[in-house]
Design a binder for these strands. Sequence first.
DNA 1: GCTTGACTTGGAGTGCGCTCAAAGGTGCAC
DNA 2: GTGCACCTTTGAGCGCACTCCAAGTCAAGC
Lengths: 120, 120
Amino acid sequence: MGITIQEAARTSGLSAHTLRYYERIGLIHEVERDAAGHRTYAGSDLAWLEFLTKLRTTGMPIADMCRYAALRRQGPETAAERRRMLEVHRERVRERIARLNEDLAALDHKIDSYHAMEIT
Amino acid sequence: MGITIQEAARTSGLSAHTLRYYERIGLIHEVERDAAGHRTYAGSDLAWLEFLTKLRTTGMPIADMCRYAALRRQGPETAAERRRMLEVHRERVRERIARLNEDLAALDHKIDSYHAMEIT
DNA sequence: GCTTGACTTGGAGTGCGCTCAAAGGTGCAC
DNA sequence: GTGCACCTTTGAGCGCACTCCAAGTCAAGC
């Protein structure tokens, strides 16, 4: 029961290096070990990793993710605080998407002007 | 004619440090100097900076921006290549927005589940 | 003339998020 | 039982994009 670090790396899209690093800084809680001392990742670990990578790709700093992970380990009484963290983060993501859309429009405009240059 | 580096910093949203850094690495071409050797930024410099910051905030690496800047200095015969660079970049930006929207939806879902926890 | 303050330079330092190196343990195939 | 692949650890190193420092220049105000 539980998959190796290489399999977990392939599944999560992170490197084995990064998985160990995440555990070291407390982002992932103590992964189970087999008799040889090798890590074996459970389904719950993979689900958590998937959520973590969503936070990462949406730009949450590692430090905030650590804070979230610490709250999660403290138990259900921290649920409201975790929710607030996510809400604040969501707002930032929304702003970033809005900003990206604006800049994308400017980029479109610029590219159009290059096309115009080539035609004339 | 031309504004000081501090004013250019305020206008562009970059720091004076960063403006000098950008010039050093060739992102901005030799800014005019006054009698004292101080930089004086022209309107065209500010327009270029504004465009550069759009490239940055949309995630273009500095190295690519340098390449774009170098092509631009070479003159109009590089227009097609610059356009292609922007088109490639635009595609990446579109993908990133799409990915962010997906992750935003997942975040919404997660926040909803926290709300559900609190109600029950 | 002296202070003040904003500017100049080259090079070193910083923070983030990994990424790798070195040295060693474990278990399976032959 | 030897080789090999794959795992372990601690701690150092890296790439990016700045960011700052030290030492110096210059113009204006008193």
